[in-house]
Simulated assay, not measured.
Amino acid sequence: MFKRKGENLDYTCTADVERGEVVVINDALGVAASTAKKNDVIAVYMTGVFLLPKDTSTELQQGKKVYWDPAAKKVTVDANDGAESNPTAYLEAGIVWETALASADKVQVKIG
């Protein structure tokens, strides 16, 4: 039986969030649809193309799989699996929608 399209997820905020900020919910990555305070319930986009922060040392090519570094709060091509040097495992974020030059501080990423 069909329930929902699944484009948005209702989420109870565990911290204050800004509209457009990446929200990590267990093993899932989404983007806040609105600004909210801790304990507010908001919609989190689970699919779509979003402009996300990236490291300015690497060019990201269109179609490349990218990951979310929760410590740096940036997209990376590194698929860190929780190695001892950095125990925080990265989440798969999606693919680069449009090539971003190394100097760019943001990149379009297709999530979901």
Results as ranks from 00 to 15, higher is better:
V96H: 01
K73Q: 15
W97E: 14
G6R: 07
A102M: 00
E92D: 13
Q108G: 04
L91I: 11
E18D: 15
A102T: 01
K38T: 12
A43Y: 08
A72C: 09
Y11T: 04
T76W: 03
S57W: 02
A33R: 08
D10N: 11
N86H: 12
P53V: 04
E92H: 15
V22C: 08
T35M: 07
A71T: 15
A104E: 01
P87G: 14
K74R: 07
S85L: 12
M46C: 12
S85E: 13
C13W: 08
L101H: 00
D40Q: 03
Y45L: 14
T58K: 01
A100M: 03
A79D: 13
D69P: 12
D40V: 01
E98A: 13
E18W: 10
A72D: 10
A28G: 12
Y90M: 09
D40H: 00
D78Q: 03
W68G: 05
V23T: 05
P53A: 08
N86Y: 13
W68L: 03
M46G: 08
E59S: 01
V66G: 04
E59C: 00
T35R: 00
K3E: 09
V49E: 09
T12I: 09
D16T: 08
K73P: 14
L51Q: 14
A33T: 12
Q62N: 07
V17I: 03
N39Q: 13
N26S: 11
